[in-house]
């Protein structure tokens, strides 16, 4: 690891000033992904701005829902009483990710910004357009068992590794970001982007912007939500496929449905077609099977990950059954 400058800031404004002075700097919060990337030489920011002292850790009810500070740790959010009672899907998704130690370190903002776990991205001797534009995509024609089936490009087929973000996109969350120019809100579904021709860019965040909070609107999914994560071992592993399901069921009929999947795309993948197929239908296995059958419309396997085309619908049915029961 290169020896970098280290700067600790105490306020959002000081932080925004600091990043303006050195745009190549990186913010560090939990460090669970960034420190690893720096050790491996995948990224080498000349300066780290430690933002852990910023007052962005609160979890608060708002008139329309809840606001979670970007520096709230994954474990703090997962065990928060308001989150557990009003947004159990988020708590479940967080508990499905990483390990207790990492969840104690990792923050909400950092989780959103974590990089892909694609092996070619991490191995600096291999081609990877995300790490080094123009070097090629190693996973295409290579080891792509963990890779995308939706929205990939011929430049990149990596997936976003977060569990939390899958739940947040299903819950119609909004990212709140600040820069010297002020504050803006980005709907969660738009926050992460598809690789296209520029896979080096993971999301819509602009230079000089800092995530300050995530807001989730109130909902009626408390009784019927479930996060299902399928992985190679029982815990502490990234998803082969994960499914976040939130249903509102009235008189055994689905009045509102949200479904998103993880481990399938460069961003948490909202399955609007499946949601549509569920809405207004009876909460039955037949409905679930029918809805799941269209989940992989437009999906494409790259060889080793073809199984996801089969696994995703099965996981959706399973998650819907669990959530509805």
């Amino acid at each position: 690891m290169i020896n970098f400058d280290y700067l600790r800031t105490a306020s959002v404004n000081a932080t925004l000033d600091a990043i303006k002075r050195e745009p190549r700097a990186a913010f560090i919060a939990g460090g669970t992904n960034l420190v690893d990337l720096m050790k491996r030489g995948v990224t080498s920011p000349p300066r780290l701005i430690d933002i852990n002292n910023l007052p962005l850790k609160n979890i608060e009810r708002t008139s329309s829902g809840i606001s979670i500070g970007a520096l709230a740790t994954n474990s703090a959010v997962a065990i928060n009483e308001m989150i557990r009672s009003d947004f159990p899907l988020l708590s479940q998704a967080l508990h499905a990710g990483a390990s207790p130690q990492l969840r104690n370190m990792a923050t909400v903002g950092g989780n959103m910004l974590q990089r892909t776990r694609c092996t070619y991205f991490y191995d600096t001797t291999m081609p990877c357009n995300k790490r080094q534009a123009g070097s090629g995509c190693g996973a295409l024609g290579g080891y792509n068992r963990m890779h995308a089936i939706f929205g990939a490009s011929d430049k990149c087929i990596a997936v976003h590794p977060s569990d939390m973000c899958v739940a947040l996109v299903a819950l119609n969350a909004t990212a709140v970001v600040r820069s010297n120019k002020g504050e803006r809100r980005i709907p969660f579904g738009d926050f992460h982007r598809l690789p296209g021709d520029t896979p080096q860019t993971d999301n819509q965040l602009k230079a000089g912007e800092l995530i300050t909070a995530v807001e989730i609107p109130s909902n009626k999914f408390q009784q019927h939500s479930f996060y299902l994560k399928i992985r190679d071992r029982s815990s502490y592993a990234f998803a082969l496929v994960s499914v976040a399901v939130a249903l509102s069921i009235e008189n055994n009929r689905i009045s509102d449905a949200r479904i998103a999947a993880g481990g399938v795309a460069h961003k948490p993948w909202r399955l609007l077609n499946v949601e549509k197929a569920l809405t207004g239908q009876p909460a039955s296995v037949e409905t679930f099977q029918k809805a799941a059958s269209i989940a992989t419309q437009g999906a494409k396997g790259y060889g080793q990950n073809n199984f996801k085309l089969k696994l995703l619908p099965q996981a959706i049915i399973q998650a819907l059954e669990t959530a509805s029961s």
Binding site: G30, K39, S99, P100, Q101, L102, N104, M105
Partner: peptide, 28 residues
């Protein structure tokens, strides 16, 4: 040294973390 095994677990203010992914200076 990558946050993938937990052998480096310590408590910081009573909470368990992986010390391999925490920069020392962040623990001021």
């Amino acid at each position: 040294d990558q946050g993938q095994c937990g052998a480096c677990t310590v408590h910081v203010n009573g909470r368990r973390i992986n010390s391999c992914l925490s920069l020392a200076v962040m623990n001021e």
